[in-house]
Design a protein around this nucleic acid. Structure first.
Length: 224
DNA sequence: GTCCAGGGCCTAC
DNA sequence: GTAGGCCATGGA
């Protein structure tokens, strides 16, 4: 079966099974950007705690975060872990938004995806995954987020080996799907949902995987 | 007490 | 170029 067909089927099966994910609930673009940094290497629950405390002490706008001292910011986001590194990253990110886009997200949105990605990656503490999450969920750019969950699912299904690089995984999705932002958002959320609830998370063997015959993880191979 | 979570950077080899 | 250590908290 061609990869394109498989990718389409994976999306359909996951969507049928888990339904609409309504991922990344946020009231503003800056909240999504901040959340993308705060959730690095931790659960969304811990990132949400930090985000909630941040919203109690600011309106989550670029200006209000900019006005905080870095030590105050560190204290507020402590629950998300790596708080010193993240506070530094947030401050540097704010500088980028001010200097390159005049703190205007509509203006920022008008830049080409590739250029925005380079700008984001220039911030110490923002890597490929975080940059793509910002582009996809914050700016609605059709780029695919590759996280550990996606790598595990795709490599265990034999579509790519797990030592393929980030671009290999990203191309697998972007080249085999229509360039529709909402599909990319939904698909990524479904992969995370699947990884957190299916055999990949809880059981050594997969017997009733919603991905049916596409997922052979833990099953004996047919000798045919 | 141990492991892992919606990462990324740095260093040594 | 890449494996391993490090950053840090919170919950299971």
């Amino acid at each position: 079966m061609k990869n394109q067909k498989k990718i389409e089927q994976i999306f359909e099966l996951l969507f049928q099974y888990y339904g609409d994910q309504f991922w990344w609930p946020a009231k503003s673009t800056s909240e999504i950007f901040l959340g993308a940094i705060l959730t690095q290497g931790t659960t969304w629950k811990n990132a949400e705690k930090a985000l909630s405390k941040l919203s109690q002490n600011s309106d989550l706008s670029i200006e209000s975060i900019d006005n905080m001292t870095i030590t105050f910011l560190e204290e507020i986001i402590r629950s998300s872990g790596y708080f010193r590194a993240k506070a530094r990253t947030i401050k540097q990110f704010i500088e980028l938004i001010k200097n390159l886009y005049d703190s205007d997200f509509d203006y920022m949105q008008s830049f080409k995806t590739e250029l925005l990605r380079l700008h984001l990656l220039s911030v110490k503490g923002i890597g490929e995954e975080t940059a793509d999450a910002m582009l996809l969920y914050g700016l609605n750019k059709p780029t695919f987020v590759i996280d550990n969950f996606t790598v595990r699912i795709i490599s265990r299904m034999g579509l790519l080996s797990n030592n393929s690089n980030y671009n290999d995984f990203q191309r697998l999705f972007t080249q085999n799907l229509a360039q529709v932002t909402t599909t990319f958002q939904q698909f990524h959320a479904l992969l995370v949902k699947h990884a957190q609830t299916s055999c990949l998370k809880t059981k050594p063997k997969c017997r009733n995987c919603c991905l049916k015959n596409l997922c052979t993880f833990g099953r004996k191979k047919n000798k045919s």
